[in-house]
């Protein structure tokens, strides 16, 4: 659906040229929810804008839905843009228009007749769950509702691709989740390809199928979300993964528990995919005469299954403890005995 080949973007600034995007190759499949994560200045904002021609690459090419966005111009580019919806961090609604008129705007641009427009707007209002708010102005809506209008507007011309530019970064956690659920729903119902950029790993975990980690204009890590979560390679990726798995204090807690319970063994269990639903701990307690003390744990759902870590302390006869650890190793669970640092 989307092909980016050797794309580079260099901005000329007063302090000399700045490479925002540096030789990126990427292909995104139809129906995929693809996430790009990076800190600000990583180039993700420039990259997503290349997908609808708001930025043109200095070198390389960008193809979206069979159209070479990086070279077309004028009315051809405008036509192509009508098939690529975009939503924004700050919603970018027209304050002078009501919800209905905002959603109708891209239809006006596409030259859709009035009756057809009204019909389509009604459908979209229902799709995003804004029934009864059609005649409100954006200033009368909450952040989450504004983003729903943004989504309805982006979907008005039945686009093939939806670009999300930090779409939930200005929303509170609860509203973020409801918007993310709406995006997944749209992806499944309409088969829409979604490309999103964010700096929150939570967003990636919750809805993306694949993720690209960006740093200094490059993609430093790329893969299915679950794989990246399980085996983050780059330091930056590890930091992002930690955002959603390991609370920062756990290391200290573990050190503290190691000091308090020198007799036991502390094991870190990593669950991925199906194994997260197995009753491993129950079986451990039933099969061995050991005490199991759960220190800390967190399980997160991703689009392709669950991912989680659990810290347990196993106490008892050392022979029995050793058997218990061996049992854990045999399970479909990554286990790691933690020792004193």
């Amino acid at each position: 659906m989307i092909f980016i080949e050797q794309a580079k973007k260099i901005f000329q600034t007063k302090n000399g040229p700045v490479k925002a995007v540096d030789n990126i190759n990427l292909s995104i499949q139809e129906g995929e929810i693809f996430g790009m994560i990076g800190y600000s200045g990583a180039g993700k904002s420039t990259l997503i804008r290349m997908l609808n021609g708001l930025e043109t690459p200095t070198e390389g090419s960008v193809t979206v839905a069979g159209r070479k966005i990086s070279t077309i111009k004028g009315s051809e580019l405008r036509k192509a843009r009508q098939e690529i919806g975009m939503i924004f961090q700050h919603f970018n609604l027209l304050w002078s228009r009501t919800v209905r008129e905002n959603i109708a705007f891209p239809l006006e641009i596409a030259g859709v007749g009035k009756a057809e427009r009204m019909k389509r707007v009604d459908e979209l209002i229902e799709l995003v769950g804004l029934q009864g708010r059609g005649d409100s102005y954006p200033s009368q809506l909450s952040g989450g509702q504004k983003q729903r209008v943004g989504i309805a507007r982006a979907l008005a011309n039945d686009p093939k691709v939806l670009l999300c530019d930090e779409a939930t970064s200005a929303l509170d956690p609860q509203t973020t989740d409801s918007i993310l659920e709406l995006l997944v729903d749209i992806n499944q119902r309409l088969g829409l390809t979604i490309v999103l950029i964010t700096h929150e790993m939570h967003v990636i975990r919750k809805i993306c199928h694949r993720v690209a980690v960006m740093e200094n204009g490059n993609i430093v890590e790329l893969g299915p979300v679950l794989d990246v979560f399980r085996r983050p390679e780059q330091p930056i990726t590890k930091r992002f993964v930690q955002q959603v798995t390991e609370p920062e204090e756990s290391k200290e807690t573990v050190q503290h528990l190691l000091a308090e319970h020198p007799d036991g063994k502390i094991v870190k269990l990593t669950f991925v995919g199906v194994s997260a639903e197995q009753p491993v701990v129950t079986e451990l307690i039933r099969s061995f005469s050991v005490g199991v003390n759960i220190l800390q744990g967190k399980i997160s759902q991703t689009q392709n299954g669950a991912y989680g870590t659990l810290f347990v302390q196993i106490t008892g006869e050392s022979a029995e403890v050793a058997k218990a650890v061996a049992f854990l190793d045999a399970q479909q669970v990554d286990s790691e005995v933690i020792e004193y640092d």
Partner: peptide
Amino acid sequence: GVIEAARAMGASTWTIIRKVLIP
């Protein structure tokens, strides 16, 4: 951002003047 949104929707400059800048 509003002007950028209109461009992303495929609006021509004339449409942006008439339907975004003036209103």
